[in-house]
């Protein structure tokens, strides 16, 4: 009896491990193939059957890919947008979240429900009026439409930080109040330092969102010199008449994905935390 149950447990474990390994291979294959392609010479692209490991390997592809179009410029543009958004989302969302978490004022809970419902608001609805507004202001082909809105608080981040602030003991703030600290001082000196993990989650989310964003830059940036990496990669693919440049395209794709992947590996804990928090509210 016990031997039998042990053997069924063994079978179960074997099946689980087989599924895990098989699934992992499928998930990893596109990345492996991208890396392999990015190191190939152009004639190796057309080999059939394909050559799994490039030989000769041609690391120069990465340099070529980055210079076919001025990717250094695109990287700079992306970093400007990402940087300003990072700062703005941390600053404004934490201020607003503090108000919702710790202040008492009429209409607070109703307004917070409005915050939650704007989280589900599809961008497609506001897109056209906002485009008209920005074009009247002369902001097309500037980074302002891609940066400014963040400085008015990001609903999802407000939600995350409010949850976090609520878990900080009130006594700390009370003690500071008795010492004559203003609410702004409490936010800056007590809440923010205590909320570093939550702020890290938000920073990562903000970075990822704006690094990956395609539709926003597509609409607001038509000047080739203002392209972000996402737009640059799209433009690269659209260069006409140059059939298989896939080795360069894969190299450029990897370069674009690399910062996000690196961030993930160094801050995995915060990534998962943020995603998990976002799901639990449902």
């Amino acid at each position: 009896m016990s031997i039998e149950s042990r053997s069924t447990r063994q079978t179960k474990l074997t099946i689980t491990v087989m599924l895990l390994v098989g699934g992992s291979l499928i998930m990893l294959f596109p990345l492996f193939w991208t890396l392999s392609t990015s190191l190939k010479t152009i004639d190796q692209l057309m080999l059939f059957p394909p050559r799994w490991v490039p030989s000769p390997a041609q690391p120069r592809n990465f340099l070529d890919a980055m210079t076919v179009l001025p990717f250094h410029l695109y990287a700079r543009n992306t970093m400007i947008i990402v940087g300003f958004n990072l700062f703005g989302s941390l600053l404004s969302s934490s201020l607003v979240a503090y108000g919702f978490a710790r202040m008492r004022f009429p209409g607070r809970d109703a307004l917070f429900i409005v915050v939650l419902s704007t989280m589900m608001m599809p961008y497609i609805v506001q897109m056209i009026p906002l485009y008209i507004l920005y074009s009247r202001l002369g902001w097309i082909n500037t980074f302002l439409p891609l940066i400014l809105p963040t400085y008015f608080g990001v609903p999802f981040f407000i939600f995350l930080l409010r949850q976090f602030f609520k878990s900080v003991p009130e006594d700390l703030a009370d003690a500071a109040r008795i010492d004559g600290c203003s609410e702004l001082g409490i936010w800056w000196r007590i809440m923010l330092p205590l909320s570093k993990p939550a702020l890290a989650v938000i920073g990562i989310f903000s970075f990822q969102t704006h690094w990956n964003d395609f539709l926003g830059p597509l609409i607001y940036l038509t000047d080739a010199n203002l392209r972000t990496l996402a737009l640059g990669l799209y433009a690269f693919r659209a260069i006409p008449g140059q059939l298989p440049m896939f080795h360069l395209l894969m190299a450029a794709s990897l370069v674009m994905a690399l910062p996000v992947l690196l961030l993930f590996f160094f801050a995995q804990r915060y990534f998962i935390q943020g995603v998990v928090l976002s799901g639990i509210k449902g």
Binding site: G23, W33, Q208, N212, F246, M250, M256
Partner: peptide, 22 residues
């Protein structure tokens, strides 16, 4: 295993489309 299954979902969508085009 968890990391491996999760990583593709954080890839920039433009990069993912290029990879699948290929």
């Amino acid at each position: 295993f968890r990391t491996i299954f999760y990583v593709p979902s954080i890839m920039p969508v433009v990069a993912t489309t290029m990879i699948f085009l290929w």
